[in-house]
Computed example of a mutant assay.
Amino acid sequence: MKHEIQIRNRKIGENNPLFIMAECGVTCNYDIKIAKDLIDVVHDAGADAIKFILWFPEEIMSDKSVIYTYETLEGTKSENMYEMLNKLRFTLDQWYEIKEYADRKDVVMFATVNSPSGVEYAEKIGLEAYKLSSWDYNYFPLWEKIAALGKPMLIDTGPVNILDVTKVIQLMQNQGNEQSVLVHCFHTDKYAEMNMRTIPYLKQAFNTLVGYSSKDRDDETDIIAVTLGSVVLEKRLTLSRDLPGHHHVISKEPEEFQEYVKLVRNVRQALGDYNLKPSPADLAERKKWFRHLVANRDIPKGTKLISDMLEGKRPENGISPEYIDFFVGRQTKRDLKYNQAISWDDI
């Protein structure tokens, strides 16, 4: 798989800036003003992208009686899932308007697509990348249709195993699409089950770019993800946790999201190079606190030096004390004062 991909004007890879996207697939409440305001938040925070979901519940649900339960600030709420998803939709004209607004704000816009009509809408809108959810791994017609488009595919993992991932990666390659980002995600609250080392494992096992999708507004695992090689981060964003609907309560609000972007970009920068490379500040401090060779007492000219006559003291300007054995046994050519730096010409 490719080690660098491009979504619109953003290059994604180990040698490129972290690609940060806001997950707004339900928190936009499918209100056009909220969607545009969220795009503004992404732009102002310095993130790269916003992700929605193209919902067509008729095409993904056979049982329309399923009840979905979620948390809000006011407590647990349950809704008929089909009816709930049916309300989380924009018309095609509204999608055009939102995409045009995102383009003007230089925010990459793409979507999770889980149905044939979703692919049709995404192509009409002009989305530059696709997100594939954890729940669609065994629906190969969808994968084949999207992979054949030749666009980047950001792929959630979650409940799948290594064979499931192998199948869809092979499917992509069969379609000539090598633009994958495998995105580690999970649906557990237990730290011992989060298995963040999946990230480097996926990178090595599939020779692909890797990312991480955070399940809530906490940041510990996001930091871990960056240090383990994620080049893509997805974080939930809402305008307010008071808004009706699900996922708001586990999402960042605008100021929090802005701080989050700063945090993870700083973490990425702090990783640096696979090397031992002192910073300019460390090198400046070295000059102050490393030692140089000095006389440990007044030493008359013509004295045969012994080790007790020499010492290493700060700062660094002079001969390193590591050469003290070279001076022992040699005679001084001039008088040396206590704490005076010793030079090669003094013996």
Rank of each mutant, 00 (worst) to 15 (best):
D40S: 01
N114Y: 12
S180P: 06
G118P: 09
I306A: 05
N174Q: 12
L305F: 04
V107M: 08
I53T: 14
G329D: 07
P280N: 07
D156L: 12
L18V: 11
D106E: 15
T91Y: 09
L276Y: 13
M196R: 04
R291Y: 00
Q175G: 04
L228A: 08
R236I: 07
N114A: 13
I32E: 14
K287D: 01
F327P: 00
E316N: 13
V294N: 01
D93L: 06
E97R: 07
G211D: 06
Y68S: 08
G118I: 06
V160E: 02
Y201S: 11
I342Y: 02
E14N: 13
T157N: 03
N16W: 11
N16F: 13
L271F: 11
F327Y: 09
E316T: 04
M61S: 02
T112A: 08
E100G: 04
H187T: 15
T238W: 04
I32Q: 11
A45C: 06
G302F: 05
P244H: 07
M84F: 15
Y82N: 07
K288G: 02
V41T: 09
Y101H: 08
K215N: 06
K87I: 01
N177E: 05
R89S: 11
K64R: 15
V183G: 06
D48R: 00
Y323Q: 00
T27N: 15
E59H: 10
P17F: 07
L271I: 15
V261C: 08
K36N: 03
D93I: 08
F140I: 14
H248P: 10
L142Q: 06
V267R: 00
E144G: 10
I306E: 14
D189F: 15
T27A: 06
D44F: 05
P152H: 09
K167N: 09
I319H: 02
H248Y: 04
R241M: 10
N114R: 11
V160R: 12
F290D: 07
T76L: 11
K11P: 00
Y68M: 11
S62L: 12
T157C: 11
K51S: 04
I299T: 07
A341R: 14
Q6V: 15
T188R: 08
Y137L: 08
E193R: 15
S279P: 00
P116L: 09
F56Q: 06
D218S: 13
S134V: 13
I162A: 02
F206Q: 00
D164S: 09
N195P: 02
L233H: 04
T208F: 05
E23W: 03
G118R: 05
L142E: 09
Q179F: 03
W55Q: 08
I299K: 01
